[in-house]
Design a protein around this nucleic acid. Structure first.
Length: 206
DNA sequence: TAAAGGATTTTCT
DNA sequence: GAAAATCCTTTAC
């Protein structure tokens, strides 16, 4: 069975990081490769609203560097970074061009291409294929070759509108105690999904 | 189920 | 040279 997805418009990403992070819940992340298509329903995100956030790769103290340069691109740009020297993580750049803000995709629920995901992450149970930012990129074949791509342009990597996650199911949580600037980081997740990586307490309505 | 520690390499100070 | 937007294994309860 093949589902037809329509990429989200740039206007979707041209808003506050927290708004985009909340509304990405329920949307579909679609990744094509020579091996086939993988798609997943986004169930966990994290907002990096701008330079005032000390935890952001583009924090004021850091400025614009070769690494975070894609974050200064137009809304809908792909920003991929290597974390802890091991894991590739996928972000959607949000807000106006030259304002470095992004939303980290932290977890998805497999919708299409499950067999391909199993091949890419052998020996894992299905719920462990994509329940983390570094896991989902490996399962879906997402890497640095896709840097600066436009998520609004369709294949090979884009995000499509999905079902709206009801307010009662969406959790807005504040990440605490991770690093010095962590107070500024906001996470969102769908509490109904087994694929969520971190289930922190709700700190606000979402 | 939860907590703790090692892995591994890029980036910036 | 230290820290990092994490993952995985081990250990304990």
């Amino acid at each position: 069975m093949s589902v037809r997805y329509r990429p989200l418009p740039a206007s979707f990403f041209d808003r506050r990081a927290e708004t985009v992070a909340r509304e990405l819940l329920g949307c579909f992340l679609v990744s094509d490769s020579a091996e086939g298509r993988c798609a997943g329903c986004i169930v966990e995100t994290e907002a990096y609203p701008g330079p005032h956030d000390p935890a952001s790769h583009a924090a004021r103290s850091v400025g614009r560097t070769a690494r975070n340069d894609p974050m200064f691109g137009p809304p809908g740009t792909v920003y991929i970074h290597l974390n802890y020297g091991v894991h590739w993580c996928l972000n959607a750049v949000v807000g106006r061009e030259d304002h470095p803000a992004a939303v980290l995709i932290r977890a998805v629920e497999p919708v299409e291409g499950l067999e391909l995901m199993r091949l890419r992450r052998p020996g894992r149970r299905d719920r462990e294929l994509t329940n983390g930012p570094g896991k989902l990129t490996k399962a879906m074949g997402i890497g640095p070759a896709l840097q600066r791509l436009r998520l609004t342009a369709g294949p090979p990597l884009f995000i499509a509108l999905g079902e709206v996650v009801p307010a009662g199911a969406a959790v807005r949580a504040q990440r605490v105690g991770i690093s010095k600037g962590a107070e500024a980081e906001w996470r969102f997740y769908d509490r109904r999904s087994p694929w969520v990586s971190r289930r922190d307490r709700r700190v606000d309505g979402a």
